[in-house]
């Protein structure tokens, strides 16, 4: 069953200019995305910087208000609800940021940071019980109870991310957005956090939207993978399907660009031509056509739909059928 379903969600940021601010254009960060995440599923969202993947994550949690479209969470549309009515939604959803350092208040102790969600939602009114719960959470993520009174600057990057994960788990959420949770960590610590996320996901049957540009990490943790380019999803498939059989030309280039730690497989990979176009004025029709090697005249005319080519495998490309 779908836990969260986004239908044609758009997020356009207005650009102001002039002395008397006037809207002169829009940054189309998310431009018509339909995506659903099932219960107990990790959906990996891959895209290059500026493609709108972080914006999509924030819109899904209503940290940003969508410009258009609807978001169904447990069957209820939360896209247009007022912020005051979102308390029960926020209780069931959480976010983990890339930079664990700046997502912890430097002047709050670890205990205070982790119990904030409990305080906000008026759970465990009894102080001793609340502390007990916080300690339980800290232990769950591999920290110790004596860390309760310490401050963030006393911890290493990996430990800070563990604290953030503990805070995210405090309310037993159903849906978690993890925005590049390991990108800022040391290489030798990344695996610890990836494994922790994987274990917690399995234990609590969490649904996770795992946003990252680290393709190998996404491959490791995700059940399904979506590839995003300039505000749109260009390909969506199961993890093993997309890595074995990428169909969109962009996906192909992207996946083959990942450097493999094996000096004996140095392939001459095709380079992507040109630069990523601006999301203010993206190319008409297929957004990838100016950089695509299989671009046909039709690609410059007609906007492709995200169509199903196999069970669970969707591609937004007109020329795909020709490639067979």
């Amino acid at each position: 069953m779908d836990l969260i379903e986004m239908r044609d969600v758009k997020k356009h940021f207005p650009i102001y200019s002039g002395i008397l601010p006037k809207v002169v254009g829009h940054i189309k960060a998310v431009d018509g995305i339909s995506l659903s995440i099932e219960q107990n599923e990790v959906l990996g969202l891959i895209g290059e910087s500026g493609c709108g993947k972080t914006t999509l994550g924030k819109v899904a949690l209503r940290l940003l208000d969508p410009s258009e479209g609807s978001i169904f969470f447990e069957g209820i549309d939360i896209a247009k609800k007022k912020h005051d009515d979102l308390l029960s939604f926020k209780k069931k959803t959480q976010i983990i940021f890339q930079d664990a350092h700046s997502s912890l208040d430097p002047r709050s102790s670890i205990g205070l940071s982790v119990e904030e969600p409990l305080r906000t939602h008026k759970m465990f009114q009894d102080r001793a019980k609340r502390k007990e719960r916080v300690v339980e959470l800290l232990e769950e993520v591999g920290l110790e109870s004596e860390h309760y009174d310490r401050y963030p600057h006393e911890f290493s990057g990996g430990q800070k991310q563990r604290i953030c994960i503990a805070r995210a788990l405090a309310l037993d959420p159903k849906f978690v957005v993890a925005d590049e949770p390991v990108s800022s960590l040391d290489v030798s610590v990344r695996a610890q956090i990836l494994n922790l996320l994987k274990d917690l996901q399995a234990k609590y049957h969490l649904s996770i939207l795992y946003i990252s540009h680290d393709i190998s990490g996404v491959k490791y943790i995700s059940n399904r993978v979506a590839i995003m380019y300039l505000g749109k999803i260009v390909e969506l498939a199961d993890q093993n399907e997309i890595f074995k059989n990428p169909c969109h030309p962009y996906t192909k280039v992207l996946l083959s660009s990942v450097p493999v730690p094996d000096p004996e497989t140095r392939e001459e990979v095709k380079l992507l031509k040109g630069e990523v176009p601006s999301p203010i004025d993206p190319p008409k029709a297929c957004r990838f056509h100016p950089r695509c090697d299989c671009c046909t005249p039709e690609c410059k005319e007609r906007e492709p739909e995200l169509r199903r080519i196999k069970k669970g495998h969707f591609v937004r490309c007109l020329s795909f059928k020709d490639l067979g």
Binding site: V189, N195, I215, V260, D262
Partner: peptide, 13 residues
């Protein structure tokens, strides 16, 4: 480290 060219069941941190 997770790898794109090899399927890994579980990383050993």
């Amino acid at each position: 480290i997770p790898r794109i060219d090899v399927d890994i069941e579980r990383l050993e941190p």
